[in-house]
Structures are given as C-alpha cells and as structure tokens.
Design a protein around this nucleic acid. Structure first.
Lengths: 222, 222
DNA sequence: AAATTCTTAGGTATTTATGCGTACTTTTGT
DNA sequence: ACAAAAGTACGCATAAATACCTAAGAATTT
C-alpha cells in the first residue's frame, strides 16, 4: 500500500445510465471513496447522448449501463470505441447473463461489474480499467470461466455432447411443441421425452425452457 | 393533375449521406423537379452530425442513407425519432435487403427508396412521407409483400401493442427468470407477473414460453 | 369530467415442466 | 464378445406455467 503523500489526480468520468438514481448512486459511491482521486463526473441518460458527449470531450473513463432505451449499452460501447478506440469503458449491469457480458466485452468494454458492487470494489474496477486491465465482478468472472471451461464460445451441439435424439427433441421444443406432442410425434412415451428434456437441461447448463431456446438459437436450429 | 396556380412552398430538407456525390445527386434531382416546391437543403455527412443538426433545427423532411461509417442509418433514424418523434424520414439505400428495409422502418423511417430512383419518383416519395404516408420503391414494396406473405415478422414490440411493463417482464423471462424471481426483482406480486405473462402470450399470439423467447429474439432484446 | 389504458392483484383449476431416481434394451466401438 | 454409450421407459414429487376469470386504483388521454 502506498501511503506516502501523493498528488490528487482528477479523473474525468462519463456515467451512462438511463436512471437518475443509478447515476446518483455511482456518484455517491465514488465520492465516498475519494482519496487520492478527485472525480470530474459527467452524466448521460442515453447511448445517443453519451456518443455526442464523447465526440466533444475525451474522458478518462466511461461507465456504461447495459439496458437502456434506444441504443443499447453494447451498441453504445461499440460506437464509442469506433470514435475513440483508446476509451476505457466499464460495463455496468444488473445481470450476469453470459450473452450480456460477452456482448459488452466484444464491443470493447474493459470490465464488467454488477450494480450490487461495493463502493471500494467499484473504485478498484475503475482503477483497473483506467490502466487497461480487465476487471470483472466475482459472479461475472465465474460465468466467463465457466463459459471457457464448457467451450460455450464454439457453441455447437457436439461441444455439449448432444445426441441426435436430443437434437430432435430440442428442435421440436423450439417448435413450441409440448412433451406430449413431441412424444406422439416421435411415437415414444411422454416420459421418455421428459428424460431427454432433462438431459438437455443438464448438458446445456441451463435451468429451463428459456435456456433451451437460447441454446437452439446458438445452434442455429431456429 | 393540379395545374392551377398554387403558392410555392419552401420545404426544409436534411440530407444525410457520407458521399458528397450522392448528396449532390439528390440536390440536382430535387432542383430538376422544383415546381410548386422550393427546397431549403441542409447536408450531413454522418449520423452524428445529423443528430446534432436535428437537435438545433426542425426539418420538414429528412433523407437518410443506410450505410454510413460510424452510426448506421438505422441508428441515426432511431436517435432522431427519439428527439423528434414527428420527424418525416425517408430511408435511402443502394440495397433492397429485407433486413435493411425492416431496420429502417422499425427505426421509424416512413419510406424506403433505392438510389437508382427517378427524380420524379423521389419527389413523389418526399411528398408522401411529408404527409405521413409510407412510400417504397417498387423493389422494396415487393420484398415487404413477400415477407408478409411468408409470415416473416418484421415486428416491433409496439406493433404488438406491448406496454413498457410487459417489455420489462419479457426481458426478464428471457433471462431465464421464473415469475417468482421476476416478482421479487420488480417488487410486485407473483400473480401480477402471471397476468403480464398471460397478456404477453395473448398479444404475441404464441402458446408458451418458447414462443415468448422467439419473439424476444425478433425484438432483439436478446 | 369522462373514458381508456395500464398496472396491479387475486380466485380457481388444469397442464406442463423440472428434479431425481431406477432399469431395461439397443447401438456402437474395440 | 464385451464394454460403453445412447435410447427408451417409468415412478414420484414439486415447481412452474397456462387458462380464464374479475376488479380496483393509477396514469393518460380525450
């Protein structure tokens, strides 16, 4: 820990979130952590506004919410990176959904934190991304590791070990068929379809039908 | 044909295209057709610039190119419509790709014409969109009809009459949240979420969660 | 002020999906 | 021929979703 005297550095930050409350929350968090840093904060309530502001001023760091009306957070990040590729962007979201995370990171965000973050952690996250190092909330890191481990990036039915039969079931689920309907379509017992469906849930690491359909999109069978 | 005397009306137009040549071409076309109209033309070479100009001045009509570096035409239209929902926008493109067309129309463009349009047709298109009527090039109309016939949905949440709240619910369903989880997330009763979900099923004309998720993909909220 | 839409919530019932087992048969690879 | 994997089938229990209602208060629009 560096405890010796150090000049106070002013950091210009742009906070992009459609909720006033969230923006205020971040400001309060940062103020509470203000030690060696002084933050010069600008706010945007939309991706469009943020892009305009970025075009006019170069910020040291930018915090972008994922879900916003109009241009999404990921699209906002993409645009910002197009104009200012050196931007240090921290993604902020309520959700640790893998698709959200990878959208943001692929768009160019350096880090991804959840909104339930502790003030000290937020400061840490900002410090890291300002120095071009990644920073993720714990939950986010876990998801990314899990994705890596399970080879989710490649996203083929084979990489999950799905059998032909299971693919047939998945296709029919994606056609909005119930297990009963699938059973009579394939001329097998409903119980069997239940089993296959259970196996699909396990193999794909998802918790319900929604996850199955999203996987079906990944596999491009929809 | 109205040939009687009629006062010359000045129409302010904003032309958004990254190519000088295209902008000049449109200007020449409009001048050649200048009869009862006089055009006061402003130019933008990018979506960002267009948005700035729209914020400063209210144009009678706006012509937006699809392909531009930086913010795309569709995103530009979306932004413009956010600030000035009454804007009359005509999309302009070299291509009659269905995805381009529906992106532009969903973003809020009133019409879509190809760049090989005849001057007289361009004037007609502008006249139509200024009066809030749709206008499409022949090729475009054909594509749209074909899409309609094949039941390819080019839907927006609005076209199904979804409310903001219903969209919030749908987003959370797409996050694999159960109704119980959504309820506590939004701090409302599970039964309320049940109701919203039921309304979503009805409005989207689908029979189960699978249909909801497919709709969510169409709406690009996944 | 009246009408309409949205959001909220609940009643009641049925259908469907999920979780965790077991077990037998068929197919596949070696 | 043998082992492993896949497919088939079922029990039992609970969780979740769907269907079809009503209805009150809030917010918007007319």
């Amino acid at each position: 820990m560096v405890t010796a005297a150090r000049s106070v550095k002013t950091i210009s930050l742009l906070i992009v979130d459609d909720h006033q409350m969230v923006r205020d929350g971040i400001k309060v968090m940062l103020e509470s952590q203000q030690g060696y840093y002084k933050f010069d904060i600008t706010e945007s309530d939309s991706g469009e506004d943020a892009i305009n502001k970025v075009l006019r001023k170069n910020f040291d760091g930018i915090i972008v919410d994922y879900q916003m009306p109009g241009i999404s957070g990921a699209e906002t990040v993409k645009s910002i990176m197009m104009y200012r590729p050196e931007s240090k962007i921290l993604a902020l979201s309520n959700y640790d959904e893998l698709s959200y995370i990878s959208n943001m990171l692929n768009a160019g965000a350096k880090g991804y934190v959840l909104k339930n973050i502790e003030p000290s952690q937020l400061l840490l996250a900002i410090q890291n991304i300002l120095e071009d190092r990644p920073y993720y909330s714990n939950e986010v890191a876990v998801k990314l590791l899990d994705a890596e481990r399970n080879n989710i990036r490649t996203g083929t039915p084979e990489s999950y070990g799905l059998t032909k039969r299971e693919m047939e079931i998945l296709k029919r689920i994606a056609l909005e068929m119930t297990n009963d309907e699938i059973a009579s379509d394939l001329k097998i017992a409903k119980r069997t379809v239940d089993s296959h469906r259970q196996n699909l849930l396990n193999k794909l690491h998802v918790k319900n039908t929604v996850g199955l359909i999203k996987a079906a999109y990944e596999f491009k069978i929809i």
